[in-house]
Simulated scan of single mutants.
Amino acid sequence: MRLFKQLLLIMLLVASPLGQAKPLVLGQISDRPGKDLDELRPMVDYAAAHLTSLGISSGEVRLFDSAEALIAAMQAGEVDWVTETPYTAARLVREAGARPLLRKWKRGQQYYQTLIYTHADSAIREIGDLAGKRIAFEHPESFSSYFVPRLILEQAGLQLTALETIGQAPDTDRVGYLFSRNEKNNALWVHKSLVSAGALNNSDWENPKRVPDALRQDLRIIYRSVQYPRAMELVSPGLALELADGLRKLLLGMAGSGATDILARYEHTTGFAPLQPGDLQLLHDIYENSRSW
């Protein structure tokens, strides 16, 4: 009788939603795993706790060292949900079949723009003056500090070449570029004239923790891009439509649900907004424009 009861219990668990439950996996590219894990964990735990009726048992965070690794994981069904900038989002949509879910507001911003800047004493006044000079982008996966400024320079008729060291000089008809890896280095390199120009988004530019006031007062903006969506939430192509819709509704309602502390820990998020009609075309254009790189 005892064995019969144990078998019956196992059968009931397998047949129930609890027995079929699976973790909700939130993924992101990261070169700061400790910090990013702390920012993402509360959000995925919150979402998992509110989506148990849709077959979610728990929340997990998975971090990847490159866009290629994240794309492969999504293709393999190992990641359900991603929060990324439009550049990586464009690759996920085209290469992994990801489905855009929402726009994300970060630090109160739904949009942001790229700034290209130089030293205040520089003779550089416009984009065309960068021929034969060096520029610092932030990171090869950065939308605002690599994709957008590179596109701006190319659309201005300039050719770019990657430099191996900060002391290397580009050909006189090309713009040489390097990656500073963080915002403060970007500003420091320009301030110390190690490079002739840098590129950052307006949010980082205005943040004294990333660009100290003492540096910013000696720098001068020479170009401002159009505005782009700050970030996007995407889900994997294999995520059930009912679950994706449940996640979308949950995130949209967070700002008014008393969960502002969870939002704030989620990369300083202040809310989410529905996708706009032109968002899919924007992602398509981003992907096509970057394929030759």
Rank of each mutant, 00 (worst) to 15 (best):
I116N: 09
A199Y: 01
K209L: 12
S145I: 02
L252C: 12
D204N: 10
N186K: 05
L7S: 11
L280H: 15
M254L: 10
V195F: 07
L163P: 00
E60C: 11
L24K: 07
G167P: 00
R265S: 14
Q75F: 14
Y87E: 02
D213K: 14
A67N: 00
S144W: 03
L219P: 00
D218N: 11
N201Q: 10
Y146P: 00
V93C: 06
A162Q: 08
D129S: 03
D45I: 11
A197Q: 01
L13K: 12
S292H: 11
I286R: 01
A199M: 01
K104M: 13
T260Q: 09
E183H: 00
V93P: 07
S193C: 12
G77D: 13
S203E: 02
D38P: 07
F272N: 04
L280S: 11
D261F: 05
I166C: 14
H191V: 10
P86I: 10
S292D: 10
F137Y: 11
L12I: 13
S196R: 14
Q20A: 14
A47S: 05
T52D: 10
Y146A: 13
M232A: 02
T260D: 11
K133C: 01
V44M: 08
A199G: 03
R41I: 07
L219E: 01
L18D: 03
G278I: 04
W81C: 03
N186C: 08
S58A: 13
L282S: 08
K106W: 10
K192Y: 13
I56T: 06
P277E: 00
N185L: 02
E78N: 13
E39M: 09
A264G: 09
S122V: 08
P100I: 00
T161Y: 04
Y146T: 11
T85R: 02
L7D: 15
A67G: 04
D285K: 06
G278F: 07
P237W: 00
R103Y: 15
P17H: 13
S16G: 09
Y146E: 06
K106A: 15
I29V: 14
L130F: 07
Y228Q: 05
S53D: 13
Q75D: 02
R103I: 09
P86K: 08
F272E: 01
A90G: 07
L234T: 03
E242F: 00
I116W: 03
I56S: 01
S145G: 04
I124W: 09
T85A: 13
H191N: 13
E242S: 09
T83N: 04
Q159D: 09
K22E: 08
R62H: 14
S196F: 09
I152L: 11
P100F: 03
P212S: 08
N289S: 14
R125V: 06
D38K: 08
G253N: 12
G132R: 12
L63S: 03
I10T: 13
W81T: 00
V14E: 12
K104N: 10
A49E: 11
A21G: 12
L63P: 12
A21L: 11
H268V: 13
G176E: 03
L275M: 01
E242A: 10
